[in-house]
Computed example of a mutant assay.
Amino acid sequence: MSVKSYGLTRTSDDLDTRRRKALYHAWHRGTREMDLLLGRFADAHIADLTDDELGAFERLMEVPDRDLFGWILGREPTPDNYKGPVTDKVLAFALANPLTG
């Protein structure tokens, strides 16, 4: 599968407003690589996140793309204040679902 064929794969019809906004934000970050990484994670998990996990995901999405991409690629360590179960899930998802071009 090429990167060009990736895109939103879930509908937001069954989501509350907060989750719809998070899903949208995950797919509209600014760089295509981060759109694909966070967007695909959101497609797969947004409906299952608890409110606390959703808050952590929303906070993670406020991190600049360059920094977050460095954490995902393992080029930079994740700062302690961003470490936690949601960040671990995002990092594991990125490793298990690499972008291929």
Rank of each mutant, 00 (worst) to 15 (best):
A44Q: 14
V63D: 01
R40T: 06
F57L: 09
L8V: 09
L8W: 05
T9L: 01
E62F: 03
N97W: 02
A42Y: 00
P85D: 14
G30F: 02
H45P: 01
H25R: 15
N97S: 11
T9C: 02
P64D: 08
G84K: 08
P79Y: 06
G7N: 11
A22V: 13
V86L: 09
R29C: 00
D88Y: 07
T50H: 08
G70L: 06
F57I: 00
E58I: 07
T87G: 04
K4M: 13
P77C: 08
L95A: 14
W71P: 02
S2K: 13
R66W: 05
L73D: 07
N97E: 10
L37Y: 08
R32L: 13
K21C: 06
R18M: 01
V3D: 13
P64T: 01
D65L: 03
L73F: 03
P64E: 05
S12D: 14
F41G: 04
D65K: 09
D65S: 14
P79H: 07
D35Y: 04
S12E: 12
D51Q: 12
P77G: 04
R40N: 09
L36Q: 04
P79Q: 02
D48I: 00
D65Y: 05
E76N: 11
T100M: 09
N81D: 13
L68Q: 08
W27L: 09
Y24R: 14
H28S: 10
E33P: 00
F93P: 01
M1A: 11
E58W: 05
D88W: 06
Y82N: 08
A94K: 04
G55I: 02
A94V: 08
K4L: 14
R59T: 10
A56H: 11
L91R: 15
K21H: 11
